[in-house]
Nucleic acid binder design. Structure first.
Lengths: 209, 209
DNA sequence: TTCTGTGAACGGATTCACAGCA
DNA sequence: TGCTGTGAATCCGTTCACAGAA
């Protein structure tokens, strides 16, 4: 249990969590690894093994209590609290991110927004006033959020990421289309729909539709 | 070469592609697996093995000719042509997608947009007029695009995905926060920033910042 | 009987290490 | 000498299969 949990396992937990929330909403009280696996296209054995890294949450012969498992996952993933995010880059993409309420609904709150463009700085977007990126490190030191969102053009991303890391940010959601290496101990996830499309076309390219 | 190429390998090819384009832009003519791996945080051996699934593109003692390798990857991935996409769901997210020019720049063109909301239907967004989702299958039959983008609320997604698949769509970029099982032979990639955040908080949760 | 939890077996992806070519 | 291409070795995640609890 103290032993290293594989990253792939951690990545699946939010999927379980989301599905369990949906099941709870449907009034389901108990679910077996079989059923859960059916919804997700994952083998029951994998679900059981994944969960077993963190404890023994099920009842033999019955399955998992939905509400109880949700609570465990909230604790494991740290979803039982609010998280502050800073956003860097308030171009079209950055604004779309600020306008999206799906983050806040899950406890992720953007508390500061930055840009390097003087035209942007000072503008208000919703409740936030865009700050100059030059003040990034000062602001980060005072509010010390844990998570950063990068929504700047690709060429600017590496520098922004370095700055965030230097200021103590340990998790980065990167929308910029670059493969930036996060240093050891810093989590980074890339959101890149173009890469997703480009890997799918491989499978389409010589099929005759 | 006819043998099955692992999916993970295919997923990395667009990353190589993108990086090579950047290197070409910097005037670089030859690159070794060593260098490329350094930029990407991938071992040189992995890059060489990945590429070896598709042919022998390098020169011993030298490395890979950047332009030549780019051309090979374009062919392998099917990026040497234009791809038509249909978008389902023109809410905030769908509009953001339509307003994004990064797809078209890479040869991915949204040629039709659908929604089930009568308020939306008929509206023009850029060059596209939103169509009623009821006509989805007819339209798909006439224009037969290969790729669909799903940007509808989670509860609607499974049905939309089924319809797309029934109409011959073989690749789906899914922005809806649901784990939908695509049938055999249908590629699907999920874009879900919330899941990404929720997996990162696991690593943050008990570190003292 | 049913379904969990888990060691063992398996399989697939990554890395190693080296032959061979420039 | 430098770097590719690739079988072999290794590592690691998934699946199997079964003991044990409800």
């Amino acid at each position: 249990m103290v032993l290293e949990v594989p990253q792939v396992v951690v990545n699946r937990l939010p999927i379980y969590y989301r599905t369990l929330i949906a099941l709870e909403g449907q009034g389901k009280e108990v679910v077996s690894s079989q059923e859960l696996g059916f919804f997700l296209g994952i083998t029951p054995a994998q679900i059981r093994k994944d969960l077993s890294y963190f404890g023994r949450f099920g009842k033999q012969g019955r399955g998992y209590n939905v509400r109880r498992l949700i609570e465990h996952l909230r604790g494991i993933l740290g979803l039982d609290r609010q998280w502050s995010l800073v956003l860097v880059g308030v171009g079209k993409l950055g604004r779309a991110i600020l306008g999206y309420n799906g983050f806040a609904r899950q406890g992720f709150n953007v508390v500061a927004a930055f840009d390097k463009d003087p035209e942007m700085v000072g503008q208000c977007i919703g409740p936030l006033q865009v700050q100059d990126i030059a003040g990034l490190s000062d602001t980060l030191r005072s509010i010390s959020p844990r998570i950063g969102i990068v929504a700047v053009p690709a060429p600017d991303a590496p520098e922004v990421i370095d700055t965030l890391v230097a200021c103590g940010i340990r998790a980065i959601l990167n929308y910029a289309p670059v493969e930036a290496k996060a240093p050891e101990g810093v989590q980074m996830r890339n959101i890149d729909p173009v890469l997703a499309l480009q890997s799918m076309t491989y499978y389409l390219k010589d099929r005759v539709s």
